[in-house]
């Protein structure tokens, strides 16, 4: 027998369930408990970058919006740098931007929104340039293990065409499932997205 390796095994995932709000967004469950709460507002008045709203829905296999889904996003700042010690890229840190937020869908419409800034392009440690993107993690009742996907931006066609992850998607038609569409409403920039869990337009999900 060779030496044992003795790695541990990852803890198994379980669904977040229908009442995920209690633990992660208690105000949505209907009560107020913590002094400080996490939210879908990623910016302060002093955050650098273009203010944007990310707005979308997650649809089930019948095309019905999930009304009990929770999304988290993780993104770089306007200079393309993540607020984490492992990111030592050249872009400056923005102390006014953690780069993370969470949102529950509206209990009636299923709409999910984030108030954030548009991230900059990222230079990976291997020197690759990655198109600006937002990393998305999705949990809900009926989702047994969190789903990972990304949102890219419709007005970044050149960067998207060169993005190493988008180019791993074999079918060009599926790449567009990750593109949020830029629009404007009342003078504010809104990027709209739809995440399809199933069907002909099923969103690309990643094994990260």
């Amino acid at each position: 027998m060779p030496q044992p390796l003795n790695y541990l095994k990852e803890t198994a995932s379980q669904t977040a369930g229908p009442y995920v709000h209690i633990g992660l967004i208690p105000a949505m469950a209907g009560f107020d408990i913590f002094e400080k709460n996490f939210s879908n507002m990623l910016v302060t008045p002093n955050t650098q970058g273009e203010r944007i709203t990310l707005e979308g829905k997650v649809l089930d296999g019948t095309g019905t919006p999930l009304r009990d889904v929770l999304l988290e996003i993780w993104q770089a700042n306007a200079s393309g740098r993540y607020n984490h010690p492992a990111d030592r890229s050249a872009g400056g840190l923005d102390q006014e931007f953690r780069g993370w937020g969470r949102a529950g869908s509206d209990f009636d419409s299923g709409l999910v929104t984030f108030e954030t800034i548009k991230p900059g392009a990222i230079t990976d440690k291997t020197g690759r340039t990655c198109a600006p993107h937002v990393n998305v993690w999705i949990v809900a009742r009926g989702i047994n293990i969190g789903l990972n996907t990304r949102l890219y931006f419709s007005d970044e066609e050149t960067a998207n065409a060169a993005d190493p992850v988008l180019n791993l998607i074999e079918q060009p038609s599926r790449r567009k499932t990750l593109i949020a569409t830029r629009g404007e409403r009342a003078g504010k920039v809104v990027y709209s997205f739809t995440i399809n869990l199933q069907g002909p337009d099923e969103t690309v999900f990643f094994d990260v």
Binding site: G61, K125, G142, I143, N144, L197, F205, D207
Partner: peptide, 26 residues
């Protein structure tokens, strides 16, 4: 039963860890 309509049916696309995956909120 809730997993039936909420489960992706395509294979997940495997991507190697980039800076986007090995960083996270502090």
């Amino acid at each position: 039963k809730s997993s039936v309509l909420r489960s992706p049916r395509q294979a997940l696309l495997s991507i190697e860890s980039s800076i986007s995956e090995i960083t996270g909120p502090v």
